[in-house]
Amino acid sequence: MTMAALDANTPVMEHEDTRDSRRLGLWLTFPAQILVLFIAVFPILMQVYISLTDWSPLDGIGWWQAHELWNSFANYSDLMADDRFWSALWRTVLVMAICVPCEFLLGLGLAILFVDDFPGRRFLYSVLLIPMMVVPAVAGYMFFMLFQSGGPVNDILSFFYGAPVTIAWLSDPDLAFFAVIVSDIWQWTPLMFLILLAGMVGVPEDQLRAATLLGASWATRFRTIVLPRMKTIIIIALAIRVIENFKVFDNFYIMTGGGPGVATETISIYIYKVTQQELIWGYVAAVALVILIALSVVSALAIKRMSREVSQ
């Protein structure tokens, strides 16, 4: 072993490797690939299997024996007719359609404010990121307290209104829906802000200067340079939040338990209830699979879009 080998391994590799070394690399990573495949694929196959049966842990037989309770596609046809499932799904999409744009616009606004330096910027920046670090269950509990009829929200409203206000936030279906959405926006706007700020800082300074010297106003620069340059990161931020938001559970469950009635029952809360309270796991597996497929389609579209952007 001499220095040449060490030199040789450093920066010369500009061109393609030879075909031999590529094949060797494939063989070397083969065991790891098998392992990854197993970890990722096995639970899904298990889900598919169970979703085609009536199996429940109460039946007293192991999941691998579930074929004794084979029901073909009964779970899936039940699902199609399950109003509660469809309304939970619709509600989840509605939460997403309200929360994600609000978080995006708030995050973008904050990013614009924070992209240039001002006194106290670092401090405010840290403060702004706090909600993101709070455990969602704790955040749920906080907002549960805030929205009590004798809680701080009503106190503040009373102060401005001049008379005692006793709105039953979490008992009214519409108001409860509003309250859980507020809690989600409070918690996740900082993440959007963080990602968008990172993207905005990455816009080349010289291009902005060049645009300014060519006579472009702030708004023009923002529209023609900043936004197009942030396109990829915006798509990433939105994709993350859409996928995350679909899975929203903790704070909703703690604030309202999905209620009153099913007024705030999202798909996760619905699955949780069916799993833990009704224990029909074959059915749950079917629900979970349908959601997985739906989410995969959304992410695949987003990733395709992203890679197209990046390749440009």
């Binding site: 072993m1 001499t2 220095m3 080998a5 030199d7 040789a8 450093t10 010369v12």
Partner: peptide
């Protein structure tokens, strides 16, 4: 002959 045994040095 492998690079290591050629005893040729490179300045990058």
């Amino acid at each position: 002959v492998s690079p290591a045994r050629r005893n040729v040095a490179m300045v990058f």
